[in-house]
Design a protein around this nucleic acid. Structure first.
Lengths: 210, 210
DNA sequence: GATTATAATTACATGGATGTAATTATAAAG
DNA sequence: CTTTATAATTACATCCATGTAATTATAATC
């Protein structure tokens, strides 16, 4: 699922101006679709959303934008696998460089003793919150697929658990699938419907034989 | 001992402009003598110097000035007794307020877990460094005091250990004292010289008697 | 195809922070 | 008392970041 500037602004509490400025200064650019002039759209991915929210969170904490730039560069390069439960990431800086430090309490205390700045970002929580926002805002999309010459209505939604898309056929209970892209999900649900129909055929044949 | 703007700039690595700006914006004002126009002098105390260096250190770490303002306000109000060995002070912020936290590792880790910004300032080291700077820059001042109708040359220097001034009479070994102000130190050294002379008198009387 | 909506773009402004340099009133030195 | 030195002050400029609003090319809708 992709997000335009307006949606990004709503979800991250950043102003449109900030989003624009950060794009123009090559800080955080929309990775799905860049602006190409009037009438075009900036489209951000979910990962972009995480970075934007991350930066906004640090800004609100009083970290300078220059420092945040470095933190986001690091985040882009070393984005850890986001998984449950909530993951906390801890960063430290000596004023020049930004490092992510391990979940090692002793190391954290030691770096503080050496006079450093440490800030903790609950990245897992950021991701969870963003997922919640995305889910609550999305409308299920209805598609129509044809299997064996007949049309079936299917519903597609963003899969916030595994990424990609979830798809199901409401008129055929239990008939569902998922795919990384919309096209793939549509193919997969066709296969699922096909399989469902085969089961129905078999049952009918058994009935006829008895 | 007091410090003018030029000295403050040298010792803290702040520009004259920054020192001026921070005074005019009521951030850190010279507590000994405020500017009153052309030809006047801003005079900062050692405590002021600590605050300025503290703020500069945070600025270099990438903390925003607005955040630093709050930290310095806190520092002014709750300046802990500076003592050896080097003291580390740890601050945390939730983005709105600044708190000093105890030397409690568990509490530090917990506040980090809750997504806060923590920065550690080795205030003791700042103080030590500033003391070193002050000592290396000062010239001993020579004064003349009169005791029992005779003049004695004494030397005065800033006492970086206890604050105030140290004073001694080079021509009378072991004859030294200290005071919180220059005047007080001069009175104290007079008393010390008086005492020294009394000991000398007693020795002479004992010699005569034998 | 015409009309409307929309997000990007452009433009100007503001505020905070700081750099650079000329001016000035006073203190220090001779 | 005159001359020189000095730090504060004034003034203008720059940079970064952001606010606000008008403009515009394109997409969406009818």
């Amino acid at each position: 699922m992709n997000f335009n500037s307006k949606t990004v602004s709503n979800v991250t509490s950043l102003s449109i101006r900030q989003i624009d400025y950060w794009d123009r200064t090559h800080f955080i650019k929309p990775s799905v679709s860049e602006a190409t002039g009037y009438g075009s759209l900036r489209l951000y991915s979910f990962h972009d959303l995480i970075q934007l929210k991350f930066a906004k969170t640090l800004l609100d904490k009083g970290v300078s934008l220059q420092k945040i730039r470095k933190a986001v560069i690091y985040l882009k390069k070393n984005m850890p696998e986001i998984k449950k439960p909530l993951l906390e990431l801890k960063f430290l800086t000596d004023g020049e460089t930004i490092f992510v430090i391990t979940e090692n309490d002793k190391k954290i205390i030691n770096t503080l003793k050496s006079g450093q700045l440490v800030f903790s970002i609950a990245l897992g929580k950021i991701v969870e919150d963003l997922k919640g926002e995305v889910v609550s805002m999305q409308k299920d999309k209805t598609y129509s697929v044809t299997v064996r010459g007949r049309k079936y209505s299917v519903m597609l939604r963003v899969d916030t658990e595994d990424g990609g898309y979830w798809i199901e056929s409401p008129s055929l209970p239990g008939c569902a699938s998922q795919g990384d892209t919309i096209e793939e999900a549509l193919e997969m649900i066709k296969d699922a419907i096909e399989g469902h129909l085969e089961v129905v055929d078999k049952k009918r044949k058994v009935k006829k034989a008895s």
